[in-house]
C-alpha cells in the first residue's frame, strides 16, 4: 500500500443528514496501519469496534456527544477524544500511532 489516504472513507451512499458519522484513519509514519479502532462512550464503555481498512480508514455511526476513539495496533494503543455532531460534515479524526 503506497501512502495513506487523508481522512475517513468515502461518504457516497451515506445519509450524512441523518447519521452522526465519526471517521478517520490510523497511520504510523504516514503509512496506513492495519489494526482496530474502538468507540467508547463518555463513561468509557465499549460501544463499537471496527478493523481499519487496507488504507487505514475507519467509520462509526454514533450519536452527538463526547466519545473516545481507541486505536489498537500491534505494539501500541492510542486514545483520542472527540465531540461528534449530527448532520452536515462527519467528524474526521487522524490517529497517528
Amino acid at each position: 500500500m503506497c501512502g495513506a489516504k487523508a481522512g475517513g472513507p468515502d461518504l457516497e451512499g451515506i445519509d450524512v443528514a441523518k447519521e452522526t458519522v465519526i471517521q478517520g484513519s490510523v497511520t504510523r509514519d504516514g503509512e496506513p496501519v492495519n489494526g482496530y479502532v474502538r468507540l467508547l462512550d463518555e463513561s468509557g464503555e465499549f460501544t463499537a469496534e471496527v478493523p481499519t481498512s487496507a488504507t487505514g480508514q475507519f467509520r462509526f455511526f454514533a450519536r452527538p456527544g463526547k466519545w473516545t476513539l481507541r486505536a489498537l495496533v500491534p505494539g501500541a494503543t492510542v486514545d483520542r477524544q472527540v465531540v461528534a455532531s449530527q448532520g452536515g460534515s462527519p467528524t474526521e479524526v487522524a490517529i497517528a500511532v
Binding site: I14, D15, K18, E19, T20, L39, D41, S43, E45, F46, T47, A48, E49, V50, R59, F60, F61, A62, R63
Partner: peptide, 19 residues
C-alpha cells in the same frame, strides 16, 4: 448491547448505520 443501545439512544452497534 452497549449502554446507548440499551437506553434507546442507538438502534444498532455504532459500526452500522442507525436507521
Amino acid at each position: 448491547r452497549s449502554p446507548d443501545e440499551f437506553s434507546g439512544k442507538l438502534l444498532a452497534p455504532a459500526h452500522l448505520p442507525q436507521e
